[in-house]
Design a binder for these strands. Structure first.
Lengths: 143, 143
DNA sequence: AATGCAATTGCAAATCGTTTGCAATAACTG
DNA sequence: CAGTTATTGCAAACGATTTGCAATTGCATT
């Protein structure tokens, strides 16, 4: 059997633990997710999944994403304008820089910013449940 | 005449400078915006405007918001889930903390974070066009 | 103040991304 | 292998926003 040992087995257990069935469409979608290094939107996931199993529908993609999100297995990002994009939740936390010209997404992480956010929230009398930090920028020509 | 000297006159000049006509519906909408201390969405602006001039339509609210946004006179924020919310652009830059329970919005500003963002963008080879920093939190009970 | 014309309007219909009702189908249980 | 129950695809519904269009209005000109 040519099974890759990516984390799609993990996804299956996540779903199973949540009392959900491992169906053929779900298997396909989970495969795609486990492989994906990028931030595909629902339609893109649908296209990729559909290429392997023509019976997968867009609704099922949405439903599966919702299930995985509820389980905390994936993150959903709604960047400016476009549709929601997804990524695996197992990677360490990071924020995003979006190229306004190309739509390209670069991940980054700043301990300092994380700490400052906590600090600000505390001063305002809140504790952070989650946050959203997106830098929309343009590649600098100027050296 | 009981005219308040808020910034709705400014809005009018902004539009006029952009070569747009000052119509009755626009006047009403601008009034609302100039008064508003909060972050109303299009529907809310429509409701308030409609209360003063029953002929104002939702489409016109959207169109006017778009015009003002294009002129840079207002900011448009699409917070998690809900519809876009607007606020005057004349206030100094700030970010938002959203109460996940009440939807309440608190503004804050951190020079440090602003600087760090610039720094990060530079390291990634970008310059920031704009950013989005939203903290979603809950009021802390624990003293 | 009356005229003309382009900008603006309200309305309804269209759009986009996403969700949902439903009857048919497929997973897991025993 | 059968029975229950979750899951499916489809199409229709959804909420926020945009748009085409014919009627109206602002405003520069007379």
């Amino acid at each position: 059997m040519s099974e890759q040992d990516t984390s799609d087995r993990d996804y299956e257990s996540v779903l199973r633990d949540a009392g959900m069935r491992i169906t053929k469409p779900r298997k396909t979608i989970l495969e795609i997710l486990a492989e994906g290094e990028d931030h595909p939107d629902a339609l893109e996931i649908f296209r990729r999944a559909n290429a392997r199993d023509a019976s997968v529908s867009l609704s099922t993609v949405y439903r599966t994403m919702k299930a995985l999100h509820d389980c905390g297995a994936i993150h959903r990002h709604a960047f400016e304008g476009g549709p929601a994009r997804f990524e695996q939740a197992d990677a360490p936390h990071h924020d995003h820089m979006i190229d306004v010209d190309t739509g390209e997404i670069v991940e980054f992480r700043s301990e300092k910013i994380e700490r400052l956010q906590e600090e600000i929230a505390r001063e305002l009398g809140y504790h952070i449940v989650y946050h959203r930090l997106e830098l929309y920028g343009r590649k600098r020509k100027t050296r």
